[in-house]
Amino acid sequence: MVILNRVSKTFGKIKALDEVTFQVNEGELFGVIGPDGAGKTTLFRILATLLLPTEGHATIKKHDVVQDFGVLRKITGYMPGQFSLYPDLTVEENLEFYARVFRTRVEDNYSLIRDIFTYLEPFRKRRAGNLSGGMKQKLALSCALIHRPEILLLDEPTTGVDPVSRAEFWGLLHNLQKQGLTILVSTPYMDEAAHCNRIALLRQGRILGVNTPKGLQEEYSLHLWGLKGERPALLLPLLRQLPAEFRVYAAGQEVRVACRERNGIEKIKALLETSEKWDHIQISLVQPDVEDCFIALMQENNELQYK
């Protein structure tokens, strides 16, 4: 459905995207996950035919994003990261405006946005600029859907939105997927990976990996232990005495230790046995989450320098 082949984009000296390659299948809910500055917005703007790649090719349904932009704008629905609707128009007026731009009517495509509109209904006469963050996102999604596109390109739709609205938004995306839409969505929140069929991890313009959330966990090649029972602030300095091949970091109230060797646990235990005050520390093998995977992939790419 979507094919990216070594797509690069440079702005002056800055390489925003560096040979990005991946494919999205028809009907998939695909997540591009990466921190601020990773290149997510550049990637989405190229797919939305708003920006030309410096090198490489990208197609959506075999239409080239550079040559066939006219066709693509009809079959894609794009929701930019910045709120881009008309703040002075009401909810209804915005919908009607976008429908007319695409030479269609709100009624013709109402079935697609019905779910979303149940949330917006109480505010239909309110100006878009006066909506809460969560409602703005829902209205923007409705406007991106108004011409019944085959693929949705959603750039950080859940950023800055509160957790309840975020959960609602993902619920809406799951329903749209059931109606046959292909959805490409970006997010800086690693915990949202679980909502996607597959994800691409992006950092500094480069793809660190493409996989299902579960596949990403299975691919994790290190042993990972979680230590509990003491403030991480106190445990961290102790565990940082471990040799350099151990990676030690906090994860919530836990301290995590990652290492290539299975018997690494012996060294951790030996360290804890140096004083009685660590007797109550519980240690267990833990499943890596997306952040653990991200950190391990960064390490493999030798990108852990922060000088």
Binding site: P35, D36, M298, Y306
Partner: peptide, 8 residues
């Protein structure tokens, strides 16, 4: 730390 990478 919203939006920063896990290592930062």
């Amino acid at each position: 730390t919203s939006g920063v990478d896990p290592m930062v």
